[in-house]
């Protein structure tokens, strides 16, 4: 279970970066809360999965990689996508299926990618990004770019065959990949403890001859960030891949339709008390790294940007029928 003890003060991270990480967590929270609200109002045409509750696990990891590094993501990709600083207007428009969306309204929430920024995309197939991640890493290795790939997936995805094949191949080829399992304890309704016979998936790393790392409190932004700084260095130095797992929790249902019968309100409420944003906020305030006004202002601005994205999306045109017949093949 996640720890709630205090994070010790860390002075080596510039204030600007701390506040930026805070902002990104606020963006994820505000964006997904907004989408959730719109889903309830029937304003979202399709399926979405929310990252609320998992903000620190996403932002802490992605804050440790550099420009030019790549990620692959999964169906629950909003957190990583926002942490990779996608244009929120386009992302919201995509979720609403508009022509101005990231994918011109043809991909939706599960296929948002941002290739220019190194995001190789969310993925509707559980485990679908793993092969892509090792291939992207092979490109970095063969072209000697010095860049690395972060492959993000859930706890449930570790039971896909592709997990075994890609970890093994990445290991024997010493590919620069961080395999990152975000363990939110469930795959839809199935508790991970019922579908693996070990305690945690990171323990599988030894089967591939690679290091396995564990972030017990994935809601502690700095714990996640510090671990990833270490792993990014290790992988960038050419030591081959690592497998890392962080514990966190999704506050909402699996996707837009989930009656939530498999977990108790008490369990959800307990986790809400371990709110990653509140935790980081308290850390910043207690250590006088930021003032309440500063943090409130960041959140206010974030909400404004999200509101702006809704306005942008609402006012955007629907895609033309012809556009459905475009982009099938590359020229």
């Amino acid at each position: 279970m996640a720890k709630t003890n205090k994070t010790k003060v860390q002075l080596d991270i510039p204030k600007e970066k701390l506040l930026h990480m805070h902002k990104l967590m606020c963006d994820i929270r505000n964006f997904d809360n907004k989408v959730n609200q719109m889903v309830k109002r029937g304003q979202v045409p399709g399926m979405t999965h929310f990252s609320v509750g998992e903000e620190a696990a996403n932002v802490g990891a992605i804050a440790a990689i550099s420009e030019g590094d790549l990620i692959t993501s999964n169906h629950r990709g909003h957190g990583q996508t926002i942490a990779m600083e996608i244009d929120l207007n386009e992302m919201m428009a995509e979720i609403m299926g508009k022509a101005t969306g990231t994918c011109k309204g043809k991909g939706g929430s599960m296929h948002i990618a941002d290739l220019d920024k190194g995001n190789l995309g969310a993925n509707g197939i559980v485990g679908g990004g793993m092969g892509m991640a090792i291939g992207a890493a092979l490109t970095q290795q063969m072209k000697k770019t010095g860049k690395i790939v972060m492959c993000c997936f859930g706890d449930g995805a570790c039971n896909e065959g592709t997990f075994h094949e890609t970890l093994n191949m990445a290991s024997v080829w010493k590919l620069p990949v961080i395999f990152y399992s975000i363990n939110n304890f469930y795959g839809i309704s199935t508790p991970i403890s019922e579908v693996i016979n070990i305690d945690y998936n990171y323990q599988r790393a030894c089967a591939y001859g690679i290091p396995g790392h564990f972030i017990e409190d994935g809601n502690d932004l700095l714990a996640v960030y510090n671990k990833f700084v270490e792993l990014v260095d290790y992988v960038r130095e050419g030591n081959g891949p690592v497998l890392v797992e962080a514990l966190t929790y999704r506050w909402y249902g699996h996707s837009t339709s989930d009656p939530g019968k498999y977990r108790t309100k008490k369990e959800v409420d307990e986790w809400k008390k371990k709110d990653p944003i509140v935790k980081f906020r308290n850390y910043l305030l207690e250590n006088k790294l930021a003032t309440e006004e500063e943090l409130d202002e960041i959140n206010r601005k974030s909400m404004e940007v999200v509101e702006g994205s809704v306005k942008f999306a609402m006012e955007s045109p629907e895609p033309t029928l012809e556009s459905a017949f475009e982009d099938i093949f590359a020229p």
Partner: peptide, 12 residues
């Protein structure tokens, strides 16, 4: 893994 790797390499 071979096919996935090929696709990821091709995309990049």
């Amino acid at each position: 893994a071979i096919s996935g790797c090929a696709i990821g390499a091709a995309m990049t």
